[in-house]
Design a protein around this nucleic acid. Structure first.
Length: 891
DNA sequence: ACATGGACTTGTGCTAAAACAA
DNA sequence: TTGTTTTAGCACAAGTCCATGT
């Protein structure tokens, strides 16, 4: 379906994306429908099996018993429930809330994790395998079962930790035996990509076997697999002109390639959908539909949201779409066509057309003079430009950093020349320029709406041609077609290069990558020319230039996240993480065993893997001296990990982007001892893991599972945690309550991944304001109660505090008002709590990068939550490939 | 084995835009 | 309407990891 998207209408709509607001139309009414549909769907689908399994969240809960209440109380409760399995851990878990847990994040302290009970999960899982109905898909179903492994980190972490221990350590051995030997079976797919599918399938059947040996045969399938639906969907038209991307749904990758737009029926559908949906729109001229758009809209047939309905019956939907193109097409196209991106040989595209990049406008001198030793100074435009870059940063914290100032001055002096009057930054007064800049900002702000709109349109028009690329006949959005403007480098943390001048990039710095038959983009700056033109279809970049700050590195122009190319690799990432589910138990057993290996390198690998698994640490590549001093797992220093007897490890280091990571984790004794040993005889700044590095670690991981690398654990743990929490805690009271559950799960993941944000400057003021409002409302409640009491006795209300006479309401009306006010207070208090809770936790990063969107989409379908409530416009576009997932999808 | 180049993903903060409250 | 708060998007920095050459 998606493809058809081409419909012009849609296109049109899309076109403006910027301006036009998306409208997701999902009428309320729809809900009912949805439900219905859902139900149907479920029935139709294999659900039975699932259900039996106990898959439904509800069931789950029931098991625990707790589930339900959770919500209100906060899911926490549930989480707390003691895991049946691990006795050990349990104590902690219960006790306190998450906080109690061992792990505390000092940072904000939200205690992050909660324990989950594995027991429940397990039970579920076990059964699940069964589901076979959908073959591929199901991969999903898989094996999780057994181990706690499957459980989300969160579960483990906190309490988990303890648990972990218990499991592994204690269990460790057994576990291992159980079955999964880590050994990899490599299915054939050497590539990471394909195999998955096959594997999945395999697994599904047997929980135990990790290997998915068999599956290999079809790897490609992986894609297909994923989408259960997908399969059908493809349609393609071969020859047509440009196609748009295959349907919105974007089914599987396969389809992607094929795409063919076809308007015919599909288009019809689409159009409707389009309207319904909301997507973006843009107008483009021709038919090229921007893929992104298409994709996004999932809405299948009717407007209703795609939510349940669509999903539910994915197949049916698909079929519709597909109709247009008969299978044959598909097949043909597949074969004849290019390989899917990513497919084997590394070819990413067959034809690629784009217009290059757009450069920032040349510098316009303002002539405002800065002062040096109190006197105005004449500067050339080049000198003034750099002075202005610095001036506008006058109120930032960078100006308090000597490193920044030194670097800036060093670079500026090169432009000023050796004998310039300006010799020292200390005697410079940039305020005139700063003030000029502030005024300019004011002016801009004060422009009328029309003026702003006109400016915007002019810009849009200028950029329009650069925004799109045509990849294998499909119009795709380009991610960052604007060349970075010159400026002062703002590194994060204590970056040694902060303040250096990032020089202007010119065409002669840029290498363009484009299809052989495509016209070479005109160089936008007359008289200049591109550095080089390449026709490399094994890479996805459209252009790149060397980073002016670090010439050894590059800045690339890629397609946008909504493109099929990116979508496919995103999907492959999640499929790989899902594959890990089948190996995790064995991997955990293996590293547990190696905690006491005689071989130091082996022991270090085991402990590092443990930390990556339990704490979701990043791999930790080596860094140069000219970068900020941050670490990851393999680069942890002795001083970053402090053993607190009997078995707690206190982590304190700066991770990516110099974000502090401060947590305490209770670990297995063997790990604790190993860490003590790794530290012994070393200085604080020495490497904790002196025998390993990321390439060794990853090489080892690859021996356990094809394609496995350290980062896969983060994806795996994040997604499995979300899936697990949603399944256990969604109670279905109403959409709002379900969303609360979702956000709670999302927060849990963010904490695991240590996704922080800085507290807004006005946070405390905002909290105070909320408190005031709540107090006011409480006063209103009291007043209402008084009046109600009087009204019941037939007396008129007292005068209000400001002396005015109130209307004489009857008791019913007063009660109603009272209830409304109380509800308002409740909501406000909840909002306040959430706000405080999330003041330093960023949910967005995990949603964008770590949570398999299919979990969210399937959950939305199961609980009739409009997907638009969970994904904004760009996420809808980015995850278009996940929209038609089966409601029973399990990560 | 290792260093380094190269390509692509992940992350935070800023700011424009949208949503709200007054 | 207007001022304020919240959110979406973007910019671009900073990671990961694979490939390749020595």
């Amino acid at each position: 379906m998606a493809v058809e998207a081409c419909d012009k209408k849609k296109l049109m709509d899309d076109m403006d994306e910027d301006e036009v607001p998306l409208v997701f139309k999902r009428s309320s009414s729809s809900s009912s429908k949805q439900n219905k549909s859902t139900l149907e769907a479920k029935k139709s689908l294999s659900q039975n099996t699932d259900r039996q399994l106990g898959r439904p969240a509800q069931d789950v809960r029931s098991q625990n018993g707790q589930g339900t209440m959770v919500q209100k109380t906060k899911m926490v409760s549930s989480s707390k429930t003691p895991p049946l399995n691990s006795p050990l851990s349990s104590p902690k878990s219960y006790n306190s809330s998450s906080k109690g847990l061992v792990v505390k994040s000092e940072v904000d302290s939200k205690p992050s994790t909660s324990v989950k009970d594995e027991s429940n999960m397990r039970s579920l899982s076990v059964k699940q395998h069964i589901k076979d109905e959908k073959p591929s898909a199901e991969a999903t179903g898989e094996p999780n079962e057994d181990s706690d492994d499957d459980k989300p980190l969160s579960a483990r972490l906190p309490a988990g930790l303890s648990r972990v221990n218990s499991n592994h350590a204690k269990k460790g051995p057994h576990a291992s035996t159980s079955g999964q030997q880590p050994k990899i079976p490599k299915p054939e797919d050497s590539d990471d990509e394909t195999p998955l599918s096959s594997k999945f399938q395999v697994k599904s059947n047997a929980g135990l076997s990790l290997h998915r040996t068999s599956g290999s045969g079809e790897r490609k399938p992986s894609l297909s697999i994923c989408d259960q639906n997908g399969s059908a969907s493809t349609e393609r038209k071969p020859s047509t002109n440009l196609k748009k991307r295959p349907g919105d749904g974007v089914k599987t990758a396969d389809e992607v390639f094929l795409k063919k737009p076809k308007l015919s029926d599909a288009s019809k559908h689409r159009s409707k959908e389009a309207s319904v949906k909301a997507e973006t729109r843009e107008e483009d001229d021709e038919d090229l539909v921007p893929i992104s758009q298409r994709t996004k809209k999932p809405t299948p047939s009717d407007k209703k949201s795609f939510s349940a309905k669509n999903m539910t019956k994915p197949k049916s939907v698909i079929s519709k779409q597909t109709n247009k193109k008969p299978k044959k097409f598909m097949e043909d196209s597949k074969q004849s066509f290019k390989l899917p991106p990513g497919s084997g040989d590394g070819q990413k595209w067959t034809t690629l057309v784009h217009n290059g990049v757009i450069f920032p406008p040349p510098y316009k001198p303002h002539g405002v003079k800065m002062l040096y030793k109190g006197k105005p100074v004449d500067l050339t435009p080049e000198q003034e430009e750099v002075a202005t870059m610095y001036s506008v940063m006058l109120e930032t914290d960078f100006l308090n950093k000597s490193q920044f100032k030194e670097n800036f001055m060093a670079d500026w002096r090169k432009i000023l020349g050796k004998n310039h009057i300006i010799q020292s930054l200390e005697h410079c007064d940039f305020t005139p320029i700063y003030e000029w800049h502030q005024k300019e900002k004011e002016k801009k702000k004060k422009m009328t709406a029309e003026e702003k709109k006109a400016l915007k349109e002019a810009k849009q028009q200028q950029e329009e041609k650069y925004m799109w690329a045509i990849v294998d006949g499909v119009k795709e959005k380009v991610g960052n077609f604007r060349v970075e403007p010159p400026g002062l480098f703002r590194g994060r943390g204590e970056h040694p290069k902060m303040g250096k001048l990032k020089k202007r990039i010119r065409p002669s710095d840029i290498t363009i990558n484009i299809g052989k038959d495509a016209p070479i983009p005109d160089c936008p700056i007359s008289g200049e020319s591109w550095k080089e033109i390449r026709h490399d279809n094994t890479v996805t970049w459209l252009a790149y230039w060397n980073d002016p700050i670090n010439p050894k590195e590059f800045k690339y122009v890629f397609l946008a996240a909504s493109s099929a190319l990116k979508g496919q690799s995103d999907k492959e990432k999640y499929e790989k993480a899902r594959l890990l589910k089948n190996y995790i138990q064995g991997i955990r057993a293996a590293y547990t065993k190696d905690f006491s290996s005689k071989d130091m390198a082996k022991r270090q690998i085991a402990v590092a893997t443990y930390l990556i698994d339990k704490l979701a640490l990043r791999a930790g590549n080596e860094k140069d001296d000219d970068e900020a001093d941050t670490v990851g797992c393999c680069t942890l220093k002795v001083e970053n990990v402090e053993p607190l007897p009997p078995n707690i490890l206190k982590f304190d280091f700066l991770g990516k982007d110099s974000i502090p990571y401060q947590k305490e984790l209770e670990v297995e004794i063997a790990v604790f001892k190993a860490i003590q040993q790794f530290r012994s005889g070393k200085k604080g700044g020495d490497d904790l893991f002196d025998q390993i590095d990321t390439s060794r670690l990853n090489a080892h991981l690859k021996s356990l599972m094809p394609g496995l690398t350290a980062k896969v654990f983060r994806t795996y743990n994040a997604s499995i945690t979300l899936d697990d929490m949603l399944r256990r805690e969604t109670n279905g009271v109403d959409v709002a309550a379900n969303i609360v559950v979702y956000n709670h799960a999302n927060k849990e993941v963010a904490i695991i991944c240590n996704h922080q944000r800085s507290e807004s400057k006005s946070h405390s003021a905002q909290m105070l304001r909320l408190d005031e409002k709540i107090e006011e409302l409480k006063a209103v409640v009291e007043e209402l109660e008084t009046d109600l009491g009087r009204a019941k006795k037939g007396r008129p209300p007292l005068k209000s505090s400001d002396g005015k006479t109130k209307r004489n309401l009857n008791p019913d009306a007063l009660e109603k008002k009272l209830a409304q006010t109380m509800a308002k207070i409740e909501k406000m208090e909840r909002d306040k709590e959430t706000k405080e809770d999330l003041k330093t936790v960023a949910l967005g990063t995990s949603k964008i990068n770590y949570l398999d969107p299919r979990i969210t989409v399937a959950w939305c379908k199961r609980h009739e939550v409009p997907i638009e409530k969970m994904f904004n416009k760009s996420l809808l576009a980015k995850f278009s490939w996940a929209m038609d997932v089966d409601p029973d999808f399990k990560f």
